[in-house]
Design a binder for these strands. Structure first.
Lengths: 347, 347
DNA sequence: CTGAAAGCGCTTACAG
DNA sequence: CTGAAAGCGCTTACAG
């Protein structure tokens, strides 16, 4: 077939399958029952013709909007912009449009824009990025409006809605295990914000890995941070000015790991030769500073794709009981770079 | 009016204005002449009813796609994600959809996706972010397909298309002038990639500001960088190990300014008390590291909005001669933070 | 379970 | 310069 084919229409599919347009529409939307025989004929025709429904026509003809809202807080977090981009792509693949909306400290105003999204734009559903995933005001509003939503790495209220997450306990365990396997014994931890469950899970993973491998660390080897660079500076100073300095530090995110690098530099501690450091998130910082950070990468593309798919599938509307089936714990990846290396005997 | 109004339709506007749907459509699309009298009646009705054409219906009925492509290279540059978000918002306001597409080193593949955007998605036009703005292969392809496009801060071929830019010469001048006004005399410069015109313009601005204020700096007070953090480290080392150390360094972007901070820390040079540093771009780094960077902020929101408006207006198709009227040089802003302060006599 | 008709809200193409 | 009709590609609502 060298001639250029125009995009197939529902009519072309119907003719090829020997059914009416309506039957094609019903098969594709999957709400009403269609005889198995015709179903298969339609699906075959769809595949043969590479048919994709025109989303403008769908929107115009029906009651669904084919729009998905995305609530985020801070775009400058690289996690957010990457999620956004992947969600944009997935939305396009599913014939939907994505509408990003920033939620900021002006909660009344933010709430209003969410309500507008629901009432005026008539979005079909929402995706919530952390820390919005745990924002009580937002969650209440969505429940009142009975709008389907998917939360990304929520900390709390896990029964409230479908969510997509990684296993933060395992993150802590994996990173710590990696350091142990590199030969480190004196492994300190900089913990994240105590308000977030994630912080505690990572810390627990850290502690359990130490126990599992029978590694004993000095008392008070965990410093408190809150995920900001500045908090990392203070935590790093506290740990690195101790007499029993660690040979490795597992920071609960990249910002705080970056702070460790800067503080160590100032103290004349060579990274990675005298001190290994690891972060979590694989942000831009991880590859900007030197040495590049060993860190954890979340499967952002996969998370975005799944979130869009859940909303686009419309299953949440068809059968609200299904909502709770959508609890997804995805795998993460340990990215080994230059900031963490084998322990060297210095004495 | 407490009752809820449904969104106005073209029919409502037509009735209120006492004309046919077609006349409304023509006024709004502005391609065909309509009598002044009716034009005004229509515009009044549009305003009164807050009418906004339904973009799905437009897409379905007509030949335009109301889609705009956005070509970018590296999403992790905060400039890019912010531009993306603002462009997304503006597109929505103009009833268009934005389709971001990454252009990477696999140029054949990237070119193919641009061609698909043109042939399959049938986008109405494109926005090019730097450094794609100067990518010869992309530019050639777009010209061959005769697709309208707007470039953001291009370096070269300024007659090729509409573009939106800031005055990089003035950036260099402004930053340098600021340092001079703070009392600095020994002001060094870390220049960006020599391949980019921007780097030379900023350097020229730096030199002219020095001349203008009769400030004489030591010879070879410009170090070469290429806009990466690592290049900044080398440049900073070269400058800060000289006998005639500067009291201020104007780095051509934030990454290199951040490198100056790190190097200075290592050398025991206190910033800002012993050394002032400035960057350009106002990236996330500018507010992550301490002290926060004095830097230049580009009017990204305004740029994005304008770019979308130019494509959405369709003027470029109506009258290609108009293309060259769209050369926009927008104002930037000097963001004063803690990394650059008044010169203190130390002796 | 299946289909023919009508309609969504615009624009195009045709007339005048 | 202006309008009535037809059509874009779907879905809804009605029938059977």
């Amino acid at each position: 077939m060298t001639e250029k084919h125009k995009r197939a229409r529902i009519k072309d599919v119907a003719e090829l399958a020997g059914v009416s347009n309506m039957t094609v529409s019903r098969v594709l939307n999957g709400v009403v029952k269609v005889s198995e025989e015709k179903r298969i004929a339609v699906l075959d025709a769809v595949e043969k013709l590479e048919y994709k429904p025109d989303s403008s026509a769908r929107r115009l003809g029906g009651h669904k909007s084919y729009m998905i809202g995305l609530l985020y807080q801070d775009l400058d977090v690289s996690y957010v912009s990457r999620f956004l981009l992947n969600a944009l792509k997935s939305s396009r693949d599913h014939g939907h449009h994505l509408i990003p909306e920033e939620i900021n400290n002006d909660i009344d105003n933010s709430l209003q824009s969410v309500i507008n999204l629901i009432n005026i734009t008539k979005i079909d559903g929402l995706i919530l990025l952390p820390p919005i995933s745990d924002n009580v005001e937002i969650l209440n509003t969505l429940q009142q409006h009975q709008l389907p939503f998917v939360r990304i790495t929520p900390d709390r209220y896990l029964d409230l809605s479908p969510y997509i997450s990684i296993d933060d306990y395992k993150v802590g365990f994996t990173v710590t295990e990696h350091l142990i396997q590199l030969g480190h014994k004196k492994i300190a931890h900089i913990m994240g914000d105590t308000e977030q469950g994630t912080s505690h899970l990572r810390r627990k993973g850290y502690e359990d890995a130490l126990n599992h491998y029978h590694v004993k660390v000095p008392a008070n080897y965990v410093a408190q941070g809150n995920y900001t660079f500045d908090s990392g500076v203070n935590a790093a100073k506290a740990i690195l000015t101790r007499d029993d300095k660690p040979s490795a530090i597992f920071a609960s995110n990249d910002e705080m790991a970056a702070a460790v690098i800067v503080v160590a530099n100032n103290l004349g501690i060579d990274i990675p030769n005298q001190l290994s450091v690891t972060g979590v998130d694989d942000t831009q910082l991880a590859t900007t500073l030197s040495p590049n950070l060993t860190t954890i990468r979340q499967p952002i593309a996969e998370m975005a794709e799944l979130a869009v798919k859940i909303i686009a599938s419309n299953d949440l509307n068809k059968d609200s009981a299904k909502a709770l089936e959508y609890r997804n714990i995805l795998d993460f990846e340990l990215i080994k770079r230059q900031s963490a290396i084998s322990y060297k005997m210095n004495e």
